[in-house]
Design a protein around this nucleic acid. Structure first.
Length: 420
RNA sequence: GUGGGCGUAGCUCAACGGUUAGAGCGUCGGGUUGUGGCCCCGGAGGCUGUGGGUUCGAUUCCCACCGCUCACCCCA
């Protein structure tokens, strides 16, 4: 039995990897235009980073983490999300001391032991943004703005931005009290899942898909009625940012997040055509997180884009190999002659390929065609004798003679012309 | 963790329980000297996911396991 990849772990093959890089490039450009800098943190952290960061009683921590003992007994975990690790690094290196607001982005693989399905893998990739050290609503707005811009720039269609405010711990506490009271009354009418949720994560009941639960929860006390003046004002200003840069949104008062650290602003960008896992980007504010990881009490806001989901909805075609010039050398002598030219063109940045086998010209032409060559340089005995080579334009089928003593720069010029 | 669907060539898929398991695409070779794509001809490539059972005979029917996939749950 041949070896296979681990369940839920996927290879990114040639043809697709080019699309990955294109997406990453767009994201980098967008983030840098907002003044962010890239950080890369390890995929492995002490388990405690996530337990303290994400919250002990979240599904992620309770049943989805790849956790195992290190050889010395430390409990280690493959990161299930990026924020906790980035903040750990920021604290460890005191990055927040450098400038006013620490503006970071990162991208890479995350790991969660869930049952794979469309848009959900055990190793998946995220593009993350974290802004640390400010509680200005402008920063909330910019985080959403960045997510929107990346998706927009890539041409993603049919997006819906949903926003909500969860309030600060104070208003949450009030709301929670009211909600619990209400839930006690209606508990018998809820589905078994929601009865469990009413003890573990009551906010989740709001987005239960069960029809009866929805009806019951339609009359439940909402967070927005419990926002303190500070939170209410903050939320309003976030929405102002979105309006002023013309990002369409809807307020979803039921929107909650699965990680404990979120406060105030939360948002999700949903896309059609992703199946059941239709959130392509999401994020929010996490003011208490830095402190709970042992750092100073500084606020933060961030977001994550799901790479695989994004690529799914871009429906990027598999890219083909292209070659600037294929050098068809016939015979040993020609091969030796041609090598330094190939070296020089490659150093200039052109894609130059040749056949590794001694093959007929016909076979080499076929190979050149398969490799998507724009030009083929034919070098055989006749050409060496005449000191004049043949350059074939594969598109127009035109062939021109190139004097051998000037071949490097002549071909360079022609290839550069083709670039434009 | 729970349910549904599906496992046949590198890929997409055929084959009533019955000869040697096929097709398209891809790949390799050929269609006379040193010129690609299109066309024509030919070749290679399969323990039909694995193991059992029913049957004279199983790719086909049944069971188990494994894998993939979609959904629940949860989330990016």
């Amino acid at each position: 039995m041949a070896v296979k990849a681990v369940r839920g772990f996927k290879d990114i093959l040639p043809g697709q990897s080019e699309n990955w890089r294109a997406v990453e490039d767009v994201a980098r450009d967008v983030f840098e235009s907002f003044g962010l800098r890239e950080i890369r943190t390890p995929v492995l952290e002490k388990t405690d980073v996530f337990v303290r960061g994400i919250g002990e009683h979240t599904d992620i921590v309770e049943k989805e983490m790849y956790t195992f003992p290190d050889r010395n007994g430390d409990s280690l975990t493959l990161r299930p999300e990026a924020t906790a690790g980035v903040i750990r690094a920021a604290i460890e290196h005191k990055l927040y001391a450098e400038s006013g607001t620490l503006k970071l982005f990162t991208m890479g693989p995350m790991f969660r032991h869930e049952r794979p399905q469309k848009g959900r893998l055990r190793q998946f990739h995220q593009i993350n943004v974290e802004l640390l050290g400010t509680d200005s609503p402008l920063s909330d707005g910019e985080v959403i703005w960045m997510a929107w811009d990346v998706l927009h720039e890539l041409g993603a269609q049919d997006l819906r931005l949903e926003v909500n405010s969860l309030g600060c711990p104070a208003c949450r506490k009030e709301h929670r009290k009211d909600l619990n009271l209400y839930l006690e009354q209606v508990s018998p009418d809820l589905c078994p899942d929601c009865q469990r949720r009413s003890r573990t994560n009551p906010l989740r009941i709001f987005d239960c898909k069960n029809q009866r639960c929805r009806e019951v929860m339609a009359r439940a006390p909402l967070i927005k009625h419990h926002l303190c003046p500070g939170c209410s004002d903050h939320f309003g200003k976030v929405l102002d940012v979105l309006e002023s840069v013309e990002i369409p949104f809807v307020i979803n008062p039921y929107l909650v997040r699965g990680l404990d650290y979120y406060v105030r602003t939360t948002f999700e960008i949903l896309a059609s055509g992703l199946g059941a896992q239709n959130t392509v980007a999401a994020g929010g504010r996490y003011d208490g997180l830095v402190r709970s990881l042992g750092g100073p009490d500084i606020p933060g806001v961030g977001m994550a884009i799901g790479m695989e989901r994004l690529l799914l909805l871009l429906d990027s075609p598999s890219s083909r190999m292209t070659t600037d010039i294929f050098v068809a050398a016939l015979g040993r002598e020609a091969r030796d002659e041609v090598m330094p030219w190939i070296r020089d063109w490659r150093r200039m940045g052109f894609v130059v390929q040749m056949s590794y086998e001694e093959k007929s010209l016909k076979a080499q032409m076929k190979e050149a065609n398969r490799l998507g060559a724009g030009y083929v340089l034919i070098v055989g005995e006749d050409e060496l004798d005449r000191e004049e080579l043949i350059l074939r334009d594969m598109k127009t089928k035109e062939q021109i003679a190139i004097p051998m003593d000037d071949v490097i720069s002549r071909v360079e010029n022609i290839l550069n012309r083709g670039d434009e």
